[in-house]
Each structure stands twice: as C-alpha cells, then as structure tokens.
Design a protein around this nucleic acid. Sequence first.
RNA 1: GCGGGUAUGGUGAAGUGGUUAACACGGCGGAUUGUGGUUCCGUUAUGCGUGGGUUCGAUCCCCACUAUUCGCCCCA
Length: 423
Amino acid sequence: MIQKPKGTYDIYGGEKAKKLLYIENLLVTLMQKYNYEYFRTPIFEASELFHRGVGETTDIVSKETYDFKDRGDRMMTLRPEGTAGVVRSYIENKLYGGVMPLKTWYYGPMYRYERPQSGRFREFYQFGIEVFGTNDPMTDAEIISIAVNFYKLLGLKGIKVNINSLGDNESRETYRQALVEYLEPYIDELCEDCKDRYTKNPLRILDCKVDKDTDILKNIPKTIDYLNEDSKAHFEAVQAYLKELQIEFVINPSIVRGLDYYTHTVFEVEANVEGFGSQNVLCGGGRYNNLVETMDGPSTPGVGFAMGLERLLTALEFEKIELDYDKGIDLYVIPMSESEKLKAITVTQFLRLNGFSAEIDYMSRNLKNNFKQADRLNSKFVVIIGNEEVETGILTIKNNETKEEYKVKLDEIIDFMDKMLGE
RNA sequence: GCGGGUAUGGUGAAGUGGUUAACACGGCGGAUUGUGGUUCCGUUAUGCGUGGGUUCGAUCCCCACUAUUCGCCCCA
C-alpha cells in the first residue's frame, strides 16, 4: 500500500474539514474588513529567491528546503515560507508604482524538510499578511492586533504576545558590535551551535535554548538598550498603539526570529496552554525594512506575519472550543421504494436549489435505517415520499427534534421550510 | 541530523511461547413489508507493520527495516 509522505496529512471530510473551512472563511471576511488584498504566488520559485530572501545561514534554507531541478535544469524550491514570494511579486509587478500602503494577505501550503512532531509538518498551511510602503508604527501595531483579534474571535484564551525591537540598520550594527564584544571572552563556554552562530549570525545566540540558563545569556546585552533615537521612538509608538487597542503584550528581549530580514519590531504569539506541545508559537512576524531592497527592488519598508493553521487547530482542540458552524443538514429525503426515487430526487434538487441543504437515500435502505441515517446526518427534518405522496402531491415532513409531522403541498414546501427554520 | 515510546479488525483496544485471537464501538441484515434513535438476535481478522533469527512451536523473545508518535535543533 502506498502511504502519504512523511509529515503530510489528509483532511477527509468530517468535523475537521468543517472547522477548517469555517476558519478559512473567517479569515477571508476579516481581511475584507481590514481592507487587505488577496495575493497568490507560486508554490515553487527559483531556489535563489529563498537563499537571498530568507537568508543563506538560516536553518530553513541551509537544511530544510525541498529542492529539485526541473526538466529545463533550473533549480527550484518548494516555498518554505510566504514572504519571499510576495516580495518577489511586489517587485516584479512594479507594485511600488501604486498607492501606498499596499496591504496584502496570502494563504497556502509551505514546505520544510524537518522531522515531524506535535505541531510540525513537512507540508503545512500558513496564513500571512505583508504591508508595503509605510514605516508607520501604527502598521506594526495593526498587524499584531489582527492576529490577536482573529484568535479572540475564534475564542482562544491562552494567548500571549511577545514583542521586541531589533532597531534600524544603525542600531543593529551598534548592537552587533556590543554583542560580539561581550561574548568574546565566553566563546569556549557556549554550546557548539552558538560557536557557529557567533561568526555567522551572533544575534541568533539570543534565543538559544541550550545556553539560556547560563549567566552568559542572562547578562547578555539587550537589543532594546542599543536602539538609536528613531528606533526607540518607533518601538515606543508601537507599544502605545497596542495599549490603545487593548492588546496585551510583554517585551521579551530574547525574541530575534530565525529569518534574517527583520528590522525594528519582531513579535511572536504563543499558545499559553497547559500541556500543549513544545511547538507553541502560533504566529510570528515583524518589520523588514531592508528586504525589498535586498531583493533588487526600490527601498521599501515592509511589515508582516505568518501563522500556522495546524497549530491553531491544535490549540482550538486543546481549549475544547466549539466553533459556530452548521453541524447538520436541513432535510433528509426518504423514498419509500424504488418507484418513488424519481420523485424523491426531484424534490431534493428543488430544495437544494432553493437554499436548503438536503440529502437523499442512495442506498435503498429500509425505513428504520433511513431514520437512523437522518439522525447520523443531523438532519433537522425528514421528508417521506411514498405512493400516497406521489399520488396526492402532498409531502410528509417530520420535524426530527419535536417529532411533529406535517402535510405540505409540494409547491408550498419552500415557504413552509422558511417558516420552520425561522428565516 | 540526533534521542525516547509505539505498531493486533473500519475504530478503541485486551491478550498468551503451544489447539477456535477477549471485549467495546461502529457497519450491515433481521425481529418490526409507512416511522427510527431503546432492546434483542445474527454477521463483521485464514489474522496480530515488513523481513530475518532463536525455538519442536512465536502475535508474544532477539535483530534489522519501515511507519507512526513525542522530544532536541529550528520554526508556523
């Protein structure tokens, strides 16, 4: 038997599918309200896009990509994240010539070759937003609030927002120097990974979990202490906006994010639920004022985030949150015998085309099992069609909850159902 | 890339080195040929992840592989 690739999963109907569609619909309507535009970019791109966009030294690019050569010998990569593709599209389509800011959102599968575990897949879905063309701290606050408000709308309770600031280029550089200076005497005491990071990307030593309890890490310089005036003002403004929007947050100096393109604000939203898996970051993002330029576009500030759908679903299950989607159908149509099937399918189609969800018996079940089936489908009403109904044109409709039975003329059935379902 | 757990039917699972592999749920059929969700009856694995080995004999012991799961690294 051929099995699914490691780290992938199927959705095969049922509650999970309904939940997923509900969440996706909520995202679409929320994005309309916030006035964001839908972006769709390819699932594979030239490998170089991610090497430059995400960062050569990141784990994501150095060891987690799905690479392949196409039949024209071009190196391609299945996208490991969404930002690089959107930025490429922004530049390639010269969207910087339009009205700013450009507020975009995307949703789709991402691919990373990792060992699967709780909350981590090789193919996983991300929803993300990217805003181009403004450096206003209000935007930073807005996108954080979007993530938080979305989780609140779904009913999630244990969410925690961590924010930090890396500052602009100047601040980053002074900080990097201070960091390297501070760490120099301790290099030998750091873990193997950190020794490597020290030369390649010292910032990432900050969120090392191996060394996190050592005095070296406890006293390590904080990025926020090295912000210049502009950067400090930016960070403070972000906080002021968040407070105004009543978004609770904590400043966490160890948040640096694993992608190289961030400047100024970085943040993570985590699920703070007892017993939740160790992969508890639901959403992460920040500002990337250098990225567009790095990718050969005109200097353009940007800010965005990405959230993982699988982790969100897990969090919802963990908090036992019931989503408000329709769990059943309106009517279940039972033909009493083979000879009534023609009439039954006509009635069913009529109902379906007039706004009701309706199902019919395809299995020629006996009456008892048909009622059982109606229960399984959570049908609000049952329509019985036998020879009497066909002769008189008057249908028997039973309310599946109250057990009340009604006789309804075929051409009055829509009005009747509207009334019954309280339309 | 590294470390731990697990692998029995459609599902959840018991089980023992030795003749017919519990039990529960679900499914299907019937008791009830136009009214069910209760109850009762019947039925539902020539088979215990794959391949080797130990043994007179292995689902149960050993090894490898594969899958899965949790964790590390990293990330959503």
